[in-house]
Amino acid sequence: MALLPIDDSTPPVGPTPSIASSGTPGVAGALEAYRQKDMTKVRFKAIGNAPIMRQNYYRITASNRFQAVIQFLRKELGWKAADPLFTYINSAFSPTPDDTVANLYKCFATEGHLIVNYSSTAAWG
């Protein structure tokens, strides 16, 4: 699992590879250069009756899909696959599980964090 608790003394992992350093020439190389790999910060917020986590801030590989965040939450909360878990960004909408964390971070980060609300019941439909 790629989620790590945040310790701000550690340097950020995996800088974005620069396009110039990509060794593969041509179009295939161009495509490869855009496959991103770096880290973003995620902040979890419980809603309603959902239990609070011991730690709310985590670092996650940006190329992960949101599905990885959902799976991580389930594991941390000790919830089974059948237990309902609803996740939202910015208390507003549910991203699709195949959105990458990088995309969500770029579009919706607040003060350097992607805020993920979680709940055991539907909150913002």
Partner: peptide, 18 residues
């Protein structure tokens, strides 16, 4: 503020940005 727009490259993750 921003157009809801996604970029799809062959065999690569979808890209979405402001």
């Amino acid at each position: 503020r921003s157009i809801p727009l996604r970029l799809f490259l062959p065999n690569a993750p979808v890209i979405q940005d402001l």
